[in-house]
Design a protein around this nucleic acid. Sequence first.
DNA 1: TTGACGTAATACCAAATGGTTTCATATATA
DNA 2: TATATATGAAACCATTTGGTATTACGTCAA
Lengths: 108, 108
Amino acid sequence: MMAAQQPTFKALADPTRREILRQLADADMTIAQVSNNFDMTRAAVKKHLTVLSDGGLITVRTKGRERINALNPEGFAPVRDWLGFFEQFWDDRLTDLKTAIEKDHSND
Amino acid sequence: MMAAQQPTFKALADPTRREILRQLADADMTIAQVSNNFDMTRAAVKKHLTVLSDGGLITVRTKGRERINALNPEGFAPVRDWLGFFEQFWDDRLTDLKTAIEKDHSND
DNA sequence: TTGACGTAATACCAAATGGTTTCATATATA
DNA sequence: TATATATGAAACCATTTGGTATTACGTCAA
């Protein structure tokens, strides 16, 4: 389990790729459909899709001569986990702070 | 409000920078302290810290001739928001699916 | 005030990145 | 079968990135 997070974060570093993900939330799309929404060549978009696929953020299924790209919810797990580490860390610190304050007030 | 997310995601794309963040969770550190934990020059670490600062993920305070680097919880908001969009999206889709199933079963 | 220390700033380099163009391959369709 | 369509793949290019080394600057302490 516990997929490597590097390919995921690498994939998310480019604004075009994040925009592609946002658009795939609306509908699954072929490479041609995705590239219609961007001012760059189909080849460039294809490269971005490859990076997204390597990062596990999308899945690709073949339908005849078309490749249909779709979001892969599981691929977002590395980001969830990474963020979770820090959120948990801050939660714990807040809890510790509260505990310390209560302890202090017990001296009133 | 609503900080630009590009500098944030850019900052998170490098494994060294994510490791620096993890270490800053344990304790605030000067540049020299951070660079002691990595097999690269202080100058290289300093560049990473600059990128992290540009991304809003850390804050730097001056204490004499030292610069103390610390995590900035607010800087994580772009990631929280970005992830939240997709989580919300999937939640809604799941809810819609459940509703559709219930509706279908009402024909029994 | 004079070093020593912590950091900033710059120039430089190799490799990665994001784009292009061109050509090849596989599948639909007339 | 012949042609159009959808994609894959490779070569190429400019810019960015992540590292280095070197030098300069501010601050502490003897």
